[in-house]
Design a binder for these strands. Sequence first.
RNA 1: GGCCCCUUCGUCUAUCGGCUAGGACGCCAGGUUUUCAUCCUGGAAAGAGGGGUUCGAUUCCCCUAGGGGCUACCA
Length: 507
Amino acid sequence: MSKFRVRFAPSPTGPLHIGGVRTALYNFLLAKQNGGDFILRIEDTDQARFVDGAEEYIKESLSWLGIFPDEGPEIGGEFGPYRQSERKDIYKPYVDQMIQEGNAYYAFDTVEELDQMRERMKKAGMQPRYDVTSRMSMKNSLTLSQDEVNDRLARGMDYVVRVKMPRKQEIKFYDEIRGYVQVQSNQIDDKVILKSDGLPTYHLANVVDDHLMKISHIIRGEEWLPSAPLHIMLYHYLGWENTIPKMAHLPLILKPEGKGKLSKRDGDRLGFPVFPIDWFDPENNEKSSGYREYGYFPEAVLNILALLGWHSSDNKELFSLSELVQHFSLKKVNKAGARFDAEKAKWFNHQYLLGMSENEILKKWQPILKANSIEKSEDYLLKVIHMIKDRVNFLNDFLEEGNYFFASPVSFDPKGMKKKWKIEGVNFCKEFLDNAAKLEEFTADNLQAVFGAMLKEKEIGVGQVMPTMRLAITGRMGGPPIFDILSLLGINEVQGRFSKAIEMFPV
RNA sequence: GGCCCCUUCGUCUAUCGGCUAGGACGCCAGGUUUUCAUCCUGGAAAGAGGGGUUCGAUUCCCCUAGGGGCUACCA
């Protein structure tokens, strides 16, 4: 039994989106589950679409999530290099081999000629394809004389190399998720495998590298399912039919609403990230937001993505990375595409927040506090966390949700003010604060006792005065227990805020 | 258009022929709470349609419909 080896092979044409991250995750999980290797391979054979910084982005995203490759660019490994642009010379012999054996051929057609061919075929009611039905009417080494071909090659004319697909053959392969898939070879065109710039296309590079890198399982998105038969043909042509990796094509992640698969623009349009971390387009410096900056925990993102297309039979939904490694199974991966559910994603993050100790939360919150130049004692901050963690989903929400812990309120709930800012309530609160000031200890319990006694004495309903207090101090109608807030803020601050509120809203 | 893949509550999904179809998010109601949130209890909510096979189909097969992907010298 050969070693379990999988690869994640993104192309650096832009930011990696969460569909890609999920593919990486599934690969990683299987590798770790089977004591195998997880390889990162950069598929940068398309120079035209290459985007600066994309590779760095991919690496940073994966490492933020804790998905560490065993082999890859920089890390190295015995099957390098791991960047296809650096493997250019490796592919050539395989191309030559296929040409020599009659399984591939040179093609000299220009873009215009290709367009014309497609037009012609369309008009004739045929599928517009460079294939068995059309190849003999094109300029290639099958139709040109040997001398002509040699001459063109010698003169350095542009050419591509195409696979020669068999006329009529059934190509069948087993997909670990979908079962057997069958396609007729005449449905596949003579794909370009070597481009005129001398670099291979995805199909060839992929097959050669997977073979050379001893990949045992190809786990990739469903968008590759249609080209899998072509890859199978290539394995046969190269004489590698006995070591074809096992294949699994993952269902796609779909838009939360409407049609189609999740796209780069959906995120900011629908209010949830589609990228792991912030991405700045180098062309226009436009930002696409990421989970990290949005405030998601990496553990939560992993959990969310794992459950998008895979589910445990026992209905367990909260999984740590190591638990995922333990429980994950390709056989339990769904076949149908999954719509992304932003609400559930938030819920997951909240679960991870609640599962953390308050000290842990504080540690993760510190950088945000620092960025906002907020300086409070650890004790103070821990109390704030304790009071509001149930009310927020993200670390980033703490400052907004608990803004009154760091500054006097600047806005006051208008509805609340209209209903609860009345002379009786205000007077009651004023008197309450006078009494509170005499307390030896300004604790929540003491405050509550004083407040309760006053309510009894004056026979006033709690609903008439409590909201008044809350409004003056926090500007809001809801929040943590008011006496806890008062106690934390301290008598001076509370009295200051109350006087200010009266000034702003005389009764 | 052609080819391939897919189809259980609004969403993510469980079920490997016996189902009063289970769970989670969200939603609604009630309880807890001064309030909001958390938490607890309860509720509404699904097998695309039509044929088969079978004692019995959500589960197996076929057709239709719908959804998705691919159809580049992009991956």
